[in-house]
Write a protein that binds this DNA or RNA. Structure first.
Lengths: 190, 190
DNA sequence: TCCAGTAGCTAGCAGTGCTAGGGACATGGT
DNA sequence: ACCATGTCCCTAGCACTGCTAGCTACTGGA
C-alpha cells in the first residue's frame, strides 16, 4: 500500500519534472528545440518514458499551456486589484497581458496559437483559463455600458492578442507598441 | 540568345508552377501536407529542383504568401470601392478581410502567422502587402478624427487578426463571430 | 527462494528538410 | 560531322524528427 502510494507520488513528480523541463527549454530556446530526445536527456530518462505520461508531444505542450494559464491569470488579477479606478484597472490589465506575452513568448504560443486539443470556449475549459478570461471581463465590466459584456471582453482579448502576435512576428514595428496599446485601450475605456 | 530566353521563360514557368502547387496543396490539406517530396511529385520533378528555385521550404511559403497579399488587397479594394458611405466602407472591408481569412486559412497563415523572413513594416515590404494595408487605412481615414491614422489602422488590423486567429484555433465560439465583428467595427466607425 | 509483474531501456521505423555526386543531355566551336 | 563543354536534373544519402516494439532487469509478495 505505502509503496504503491510512494510510486504514484514519484510518477507525479516525474510528470511535473517533464512539464517544467519542457517549459524551461521552450522559453530558453523556443519550441523547435523541444524534441523528445532533448527533453528525455534533460529529465535524465529515455524517450519512451515521456509516452508513459503523455500521449505525445502535443499533450506535453498542452500541459505546459495549462500551467501558463494559471500564471497569466495570477498576473492579470494582481494588476486589476492593484488599480484604484476602473480606467486604471483596464489599462493595467492590458499592460499586464502584453507584458506576459512579450516576456514569455514561447509559453504564450503554447497557450494561444498552438496546442489545439484543449477545450476553450466551453465549461470544460481549464479552470485557470476561465479565471484569466474572468479577470479581463471584470476589468471590462465598468466600461461595458449597454454592450454585451462577454462579447466585448472577447474583442478586447482579440485586440490584445492580435497586437502582440503581429508584433512578435515582425508584422508591426516594435517601437510603436506603447502608442498602439494606448489607442487600443482608449477604444474600450470610457 | 533565343534559346537562352526560352530557358529563362521555362524556368520562370516552373517557379510559378511550384508556388501554385504549394498553395493549392496547402489550401487543400494544410501546410503539414506540403512536404518537399510531396511537392516534388506534384510538379513532376525531383526534390532538388525545388532548391534550385528557392533556398528552402520557408522561401516557398514566403512566395505563396506574397501571392496571397495581392489577392487580399484586391478583395479589400473591391469591398471598399463598392461601398456608398464611410461606415459601409469600413464594415465592408472588415467583412472582406474576415471572409478571406476564413475562406483560405492556410494561405492566411502563410501571410500572417508563419514565414517570418519577409519585410513587413518597412518600405521594403512587398508592394501588394502595402496595398492591402492601404485599403484598410483608406477605409479607416474618415473615422480617424484626431487620432493618428496609421496607428489606428494598425490596431484595427490587430483586432481583426486576433479575432480570426483565436476563432480559427478554437479559442472563440464560431457562432458568435458576427456579433463580435459588429461590436469590433462599431468601436472604430463613428 | 522463487515467481510474477512492471518499469524503463535499446533499437528501430517511417517520415522530415536538405545536399553531395554523378550521369545524361543539349549546346556551341572546329 | 564530331567532339569538348557546360548545364540540368536525378539517385542516393545524411542527420534529424515523433513514435513504438520488444527485451532486460529489477521490485515486491508468497
Amino acid at each position: 500500500m505505502s509503496t504503491q502510494t510512494r510510486r504514484e507520488r514519484e510518477r507525479a513528480d516525474r510528470e511535473r519534472l517533464i512539464i517544467t523541463a519542457a517549459r524551461e527549454l521552450a522559453e530558453a530556446e523556443g519550441w523547435d528545440a523541444v524534441t523528445t530526445r532533448r527533453l528525455a536527456t534533460e529529465i535524465e530518462y529515455s524517450q519512451p518514458v515521456l509516452y508513459s505520461h503523455f500521449s505525445g508531444k502535443d499533450a506535453i505542450m498542452a500541459a505546459v499551456a495549462v500551467e501558463g494559464f494559471a500564471d497569466l491569470a495570477a498576473e492579470l488579477r494582481a494588476a486589476r486589484t492593484a488599480a484604484t479606478d476602473p480606467r486604471q484597472a483596464l489599462l493595467g490589465v492590458g499592460a499586464a497581458y502584453a507584458s506576459f506575452a512579450l516576456r514569455r513568448p514561447a509559453l504564450y504560443d503554447a497557450m494561444f496559437t498552438q496546442a489545439v486539443d484543449l477545450p476553450f470556449a466551453t465549461p470544460a475549459a481549464p479552470q485557470a483559463l476561465q479565471a484569466g478570461f474572468g479577470e479581463l471581463r471584470e476589468a471590462m465590466r465598468p466600461h461595458a455600458g449597454a454592450d454585451d459584456l462577454e462579447t466585448l471582453t472577447e474583442i478586447l482579448w482579440s485586440g490584445l492578442h492580435g497586437l502582440l502576435t503581429l508584433m512578435r512576428n515582425g508584422r508591426l514595428r516594435t517601437e510603436d507598441h506603447d502608442r498602439r496599446m494606448t489607442l487600443l485601450l482608449d477604444r474600450f475605456a470610457r
